[in-house]
């Protein structure tokens, strides 16, 4: 892939809609299944991923000319690990309760395929500026995906949003179970596919 020709807003929306990490690229599914039980969890982990993605993209874009191609992947991994350590310590210090709920997942950001993938396909070929917008778009795409899943699961499972009571009753308690994450992601992916198929059919007339 040569250097991108897209403008900054295009890069931003590419991450949110065109190549949404969760529903389109189907990468980093572990947190999408494991801890998307509430909107708040989705939001916090989304922010953490956004931070790591933006900063690692910028770092790699800045030093891309000094990396020997043979040790490319280890360099990416260590860069990500550094930024994950930073956000891990920050979250543990400032929001200890939410951090405890997310458990091991904050540390596991280091193994999320989406971040390495963006560094490999985008940041190592583009300027710092473009990488920043791409990272921001991808991070936001992940954040919105997680929040959408959390929204559905919290509303259907508990009848609440952000902990506030909305419905007053619990329509489908099953959705709050961690296991329901698999079903929820499966159903939402099928829904996206269905809409895409319907739109394509309409286009063809």
């Amino acid at each position: 892939m040569p250097a991108t020709t897209k403008t900054n807003p295009q890069l931003l929306f590419n991450g949110i809609l065109g190549e949404n990490p969760i529903f389109r690229l189907a990468l980093s599914m572990c947190p999408a299944v494991g801890i998307s039980t509430t909107v708040m969890n989705g939001l916090l982990l989304g922010i953490a991923v956004l931070f790591v993605q933006v900063f690692s993209s910028c770092t790699i874009a800045a030093i891309k000319n000094h990396i020997h191609p043979r040790i490319r992947i280890p360099t990416y991994t260590l860069t990500i690990a550094t930024w994950v350590t930073v956000i891990d310590l920050v979250l543990a210090a400032y929001v200890p309760e939410a951090y405890k709920q997310m458990g091991i997942f904050v540390k596991l950001i280091v193994a999320f395929a989406i971040i390495t993938m963006r560094l490999e396909t985008f940041a190592c070929k583009n300027s710092v500026n473009a990488s920043f917008w791409d990272g921001l778009g991808m991070g936001l795409g992940f954040l919105f995906g997680m929040m959408a899943l959390g929204f559905v699961r919290e509303l259907l499972g508990m009848g609440t949003l952000f902990g506030y009571d909305i419905l007053g009753f619990r329509p489908l308690l099953f959705f709050i179970l961690p296991v329901a994450g698999f079903f929820c992601v499966g159903f939402m992916m099928a829904m996206f596919n269905y809409i895409e198929l319907a739109v394509n059919r309409k286009k063809r007339g």
């Binding site: 992601v185 499966g186 829904m191 596919n193 269905y194």
Partner: peptide
Amino acid sequence: RSYRGLPIAFVVAGLFA
């Protein structure tokens, strides 16, 4: 058609879980 590929795999994984 809309379930082919990953979505049905997720549902199967859910049943296993």
